[in-house]
């Protein structure tokens, strides 16, 4: 089968923490990233195909939640049940955009755990670069986001809401938003898998977080909610993306620049925790 001699790859497994050999670890990370790209792409295509081959309406299910929220909240706002204050653009379009961005954040936040759950059998049986399942989830999130943004643009046109020429720049806060969500999800991987209470409370935590984040309302200038939203790491990124799309201005510029510096660090930390903890989790969840 294999007549030409090839370089024999050698690997040594020991109980020692990989942290002590940073050079070795960086090399492994590099190799794994390199070899996981193609696999991630395949897994992503597989997941998307699998999902849409079974559902009659396919994409419909991806865009229906933000539309329902937009319709519901607009009705509540119009009838005076809800007072959200002044928004720069028609409220339905505002909510739609905010919801799409928030959903992207939560999808990224849930991505690592979804990836592990999906690939449980695989993790237990085959050694492969574990980055691949995360990358494939991120690919799927971007795919979903693209579709949702298209629908959002249609809604903007319908409500004659303005789109700013700085719109393409919103890709940076969106990338940071996805990175932050993924990083927090990665950091929580050991806890979600090994502490039952954490996995149960995630949904409630997300809901509370949603209510405290200026998604369906503009950032409050003062008060407790205003303070919370300024400390909330999601607000400047979500607001930044929304601002660049609609008005060309970052909603919370200081917060945005802080998060621009912080997010990559949190991301690398999350990645590290994920990488190092997977063998211990695999041992226990399979």
């Amino acid at each position: 089968m294999n007549n030409h001699p090839r370089k024999i790859h050698e690997v040594v497994y020991t109980p020692d923490s990989a942290i002590h050999r940073p050079r070795q670890m960086l090399k492994e990370v590099y190799n794994d990233l390199l070899s996981s790209g193609e696999l991630a792409w395949r897994l992503m295509v597989r997941n998307i195909q699998g999902k849409y081959r079974q559902a009659f309406f396919g994409m419909f299910w991806a865009i229906i939640p933000p539309i329902v929220t937009a319709v519901g909240l607009s009705w509540a706002s119009n009838s005076g049940i809800l007072n959200v204050g002044e928004t720069e653009i028609p409220y339905p379009a505002y909510v739609m955009l905010g919801m799409v961005l928030w959903q992207t954040f939560t999808e990224a936040f849930n991505a690592p755990q979804a990836a592990i759950k999906d690939a449980k059998a695989l993790l237990a049986q085959v050694k492969f670069p574990h980055e691949a399942i995360i990358l494939s989830q991120l690919g799927e999130i971007c795919f979903n986001l693209a579709i949702k943004l298209l629908v959002t643009i249609v809604i903007f046109l319908v409500f004659q809401a303005p789109l700013h020429w700085m719109l393409p720049l919103s890709v940076f806060p969106i990338i940071l938003l996805i990175m932050l969500g993924t990083a927090l999800g990665l950091l929580l991987v050991p806890f979600i898998n090994l502490v039952e209470d954490v996995s149960r409370s995630i949904e409630i935590a997300i809901l509370i977080w949603f209510l405290l984040t200026p998604v369906t309302y503009p950032p409050p200038p003062d008060g407790i909610l205003g303070a919370i939203s300024r400390l909330n790491p999601v607000s400047p990124l979500l607001g930044g993306a929304r601002g660049l799309i609609t008005t060309g201005l970052l909603e919370m510029p200081t917060g945005f620049w802080v998060m621009l510096l912080l997010t990559p660090f949190i991301f690398i930390l999350g990645w590290l925790v994920y990488r190092l903890s997977i063998p211990f989790i695999v041992e226990r969840i399979t």
Partner: peptide, 14 residues
């Protein structure tokens, strides 16, 4: 196959 880490000792795979 590298799915779990040893607690003591080492495993070399070539």
């Amino acid at each position: 196959s590298g799915l779990m880490r040893p607690d003591i000792g080492q495993v070399k795979i070539r």
